[in-house]
Nucleic acid binder design. Sequence first.
DNA 1: CTCGTTCTACTACAACTGTAGTACGACACC
DNA 2: GGTGTCGTACTACAGTTGTAGTAGAACGAG
Lengths: 131, 131
Amino acid sequence: MTARPDDDVVLSDLQIALMRVLWARGECSTADVAEVLARERGIKHTTVATMLTRLEKRGVVSLRRDARQVYYTASVSESDVRRSMVSELLGSLFGGDARALVSHLVDEAEIAPGDLDKLRKRLARGERDHD
Amino acid sequence: MTARPDDDVVLSDLQIALMRVLWARGECSTADVAEVLARERGIKHTTVATMLTRLEKRGVVSLRRDARQVYYTASVSESDVRRSMVSELLGSLFGGDARALVSHLVDEAEIAPGDLDKLRKRLARGERDHD
DNA sequence: CTCGTTCTACTACAACTGTAGTACGACACC
DNA sequence: GGTGTCGTACTACAGTTGTAGTAGAACGAG
């Protein structure tokens, strides 16, 4: 996994929701994913099946067949997706300036200035507890 | 301007490119915007005209007609768009945790830990130099 | 062997996006 | 006044997304 860092992996909200199931649980049958999405968003299992097929075609998930069941696994990691999507957002809306983004987060009260200190300290020590 | 904070303003890369022209220069004729996009991305002016019409239909830009020319103005501010898009990204990929996003930025070397200090200090003083 | 169950694959369809051609109206220049 | 030019509006079309129905294959129960 953690494939294709060359390719841009930008996913929609729903697609990410599907991926999240795969990221969290590893290999899943269509039914597994569908069950979660049905609960979370009332989406029909056929819809989930369609989405998974398309994601497979795009190469962001891979499948394994066992008997008639199809099992899906994420081919791109959550980090890969974060990387592409954040850098896309950064490029288009913040002129590529990450500091402007952090600044925005503080202004919008998404984060407190004090948190920056904590983060800095923690990150300076090389810790990486995110995710 | 700075309209409709209720509505979600999520735009594509190209749409943002168009908006950026309007944000930077204020009211523009189709030709003005087209000229920039043609230079930046080799996009035909009819394409730009189409995009602008659609954005107007969506309510993110407004138009004024003078003689036969149409002049467009952004109806949503860059901040509005940043707000919606960042919070969308935050929600779908970072579990709504802005600190995880900052953490990601540092990990990906988009930003240096030291910058967090500078930002904190500046922001603590209530300065807002972004935009 | 037959019938119901289950799960996938195929088909469908509307909305949106990127891309652009064409046509049509108005204006300016001869 | 005719004609080329400019600019908008309309039309077109392929690709993607969200959504889901339906059909068909295979399996298990009788």
